[in-house]
Design a binder for these strands. Structure first.
Length: 589
RNA sequence: GCGCCCGUAGCUCAGCCGGAUAGAGCACGAGCCUUCUAAGCUUGGGGUCGCAGGUUCGAGUCCUGCCGGGCGCGCCA
């Protein structure tokens, strides 16, 4: 239940009734306004700009229109006060009991609190990770993987039906390089001296077991043969092995995909030719010569005729090649085929999560989707900026050339999957992110993972203490279970800090919806941090004023009400952490 | 040269399809431990939201132009 969208609907209904009664000028629209929490809490619980937005079309002054709405709003059962403020805001304050009652909603729903139906079961395809199958995953891939996975979970919570997809770039020159590199290791496994790995091949020793496996399966059947004889088989063998490696890495982070799509498979099934035919039938393909890029001319530039896609007709800067000058397909052509495949599987909402270095590619892909779907499908592309790996503020050296890059496995084994996932979501996707080993190992407020986890663990701890304090009291112990807490007297929670906490808890459904609609899972992390801070603050109030402690042995009703409140906090934290893919901690060690 | 992203407190960053007096953490100053875990809390100072225009009842948010930083720029994926 998103309180704000419910009140938006309510205000709309009221405006409609007023219009029908002639209390508003005919033609006044009854939509287009918002109901939001005011930035300054002293203004109330909800604020609407309806009077200001509708004043002009109604031909009225904003404050006059507001004054007409006020009595209607005052009539609503949960509304305590209504005020017109500033240029024409209408500020509502709800009964205290309304907020207290929301805590019961949380206990009833459990971690399903915040589940929304705004997605209305619409199918969304989220493509993420898509690391090239040429080696194990390194930290650079990690951010997109976590981002995509959390976004998918967020969309599911908001009521979308999500397909999590991985695109395997298992075609093209890099895969040949992989196959040759693995073949070299194969010869090594058969006892040959291979010496230094030649320039242009992958040097990483993760290929040794692949070579050994090749030797085991194929014996010396590939020895003394020409490359043409073994290359295709070696490609399959090596990419399969790399994908197995990548799946293991993803499993370390708790990431899974529903569908793995293969670029090679698109070629083999004729899907690329099919995509070309679709574009051709729309008259969007032609043979032409591209202008050289302005400013920086490549050394070996020569004008050559190529098969081009008319991307400029859909907002791109230049038309884009579908075939290289030697007649083979470009990567873009396969990617068009891939997105057409998604469209033909019925997806009209797609999200691609890419690295920031692919930024130059966004327009052409969106142009292609527009062209293929005649503008009926939406493709959102989320670019993830780089992760700066630091240790105590000092950059961690990585040299991919020397094969000494920091792998995802290294990082997960060092700090744990939950920490990695949380930290990766503490920035907007389009802002660079620092990942400091020293900081994430630290157990302090400086470390947001710890801070949020500590709030959850603290609730668990208080509940444990309560069970101990009332150990001899069977009725009380039963009342401490979630089912028992449902029937507590929530009206006893009348301290301003308690109401404030209840408000924050009750805003979780709205947070879910707005984060999902914006495709911004990082908002979950920031909300959880706020919620944790609010809880820690209340916990500390109990230090100065013993009467505010959660457990009051001499007042069982109050104790139960407060435990219900903090249990609700823990459930919402758990709900948010689940979206982020982080296991909530029962206690801190 | 062109395109995309970014520019908010000394530092790192939030700011929810424009909304009221711009927020948090760190750092700095002052306080709180016979405690439901001080692994925490309270409190003070600190801002021309890069610059200049524009749009309107209202701009950190939208538009234009500059300045500064990052990424990318046929036949790499």
């Amino acid at each position: 239940m998103n309180i704000f969208s419910e009140y938006q609907a309510l205000v709309g209904r009221i405006l409609g009734e007023m219009l029908a009664r002639g209390d508003l000028p005919a033609g006044t629209p009854v939509s287009g306004f918002s109901v939001e929490p005011p930035r300054d809490p002293s203004h109330g619980d909800l604020a609407t700009n309806a009077a200001m937005v509708l004043a002009r079309p109604a031909g009225m002054k904003p404050r006059d229109l507001a004054e007409r709405l006020v009595p209607e709003l005052r009539r609503q059962p949960d509304v305590a006060t209504v005020e017109v403020a500033g240029p024409g805001f209408i500020n509502l304050r709800l009964r205290q009991g309304f907020w207290q009652e929301r805590l019961r909603d949380v206990l009833r729903a459990g971690t399903a609190y915040g589940d929304s139906r705004v997605g209305a079961g619409r199918r969304v395809n989220v493509e993420y990770v898509s690391a090239n199958p040429t080696g194990p995953m390194h930290v650079g891939h990690c951010r997109g993987a976590v981002f995509g996975d959390a976004l998918a979970a967020l969309l599911e919570k908001a009521g979308f039906e999500v397909c999590r997809e991985y695109y395997i770039n298992d075609a093209g020159a890099q895969v040949d390089v992989l196959a040759r590199s693995a073949h070299l290791r194969y010869r090594e496994a058969l006892g040959e001296q291979i010496g230094a790995i030649p320039e242009g091949l992958y040097p990483g020793d993760y290929l040794q077991p692949v070579g050994a496996a090749m030797a085991k399966v194929h014996g010396d059947a590939w020895r003394g043969r020409t490359e043409a004889e073994w290359l295709a088989d070696a490609r399959h063998f090596a990419t399969d092995a790399m994908m197995a490696l990548i799946r293991e890495d993803l499993a370390l982070l708790g990431i899974r995909h529903d569908v793995f799509s293969s670029e090679r498979d698109l070629h083999e099934r004729g899907r690329v030719d099919h995509a070309l035919e679709v574009l051709r039938s729309k008259g969007l393909v032609y043979e032409g010569v591209l202008e050289p890029p302005k400013g920086k001319l490549p050394d070996d530039w020569e004008p050559r005729p190529q098969l081009l896609f008319r991307a400029t007709a859909f907002g791109d800067d230049v038309d884009r090649p579908l075939k290289k000058s030697d007649g083979s397909w470009t990567y873009f052509a396969a990617d068009i085929a891939y997105h057409l495949d998604k469209l033909e599987r019925g997806f009209t909402e797609m999200i691609d999560v890419w690295g920031a270095d692919h930024g130059g590619y966004v327009k052409r892909m969106q142009a292609a989707v527009k062209a293929l779907s005649d503008g009926r499908a939406a493709l959102d592309i989320k670019l993830c900026q780089l992760v700066n790996l630091l240790d105590n503020g000092q950059p961690v050296r990585m040299s991919k050339r020397a094969g000494s890059f920091v792998t995802l496995r290294d990082v997960v084994e060092e700090v744990g999957a939950g920490v990695v996932r949380f930290i990766m979501l503490t920035r907007k996707n389009d802002a660079p992110l620092d990942f400091d080993f020293a900081k994430v190992r630290e157990q302090s407020k400086d470390n947001p993972v710890f801070y949020v986890q500590y709030a959850h663990a603290r609730v668990c701890s208080v509940l444990r203490n309560a069970r101990e304090a009332f150990a001899g009291d069977a009725g009380m112990l039963a009342a401490l279970e979630d089912g028992g807490l449902l029937s507590v007297e929530v009206s006893l929670l009348d301290h301003p800090a308690e109401i404030e906490l209840a408000r924050l808890v009750a805003s979780w459904p709205r947070q879910v919806e707005s984060a999902a609609e914006a495709h911004e899972p990082h908002r979950v992390a920031f909300y959880l941090y706020d919620l944790a801070a609010s809880f820690h603050s209340l916990w500390n109030l109990g230090k100065d004023q013993a009467g505010l402690r959660f457990i009051n042995p001499e007042n069982r009703g109050l104790t139960l009400a407060r435990l219900a409140m903090i249990r609700a906090v823990a459930l919402v934290i758990a709900s948010g952490l689940t979206i982020m893919g982080v296991e909530p901690a029962e206690e801190m060690r």
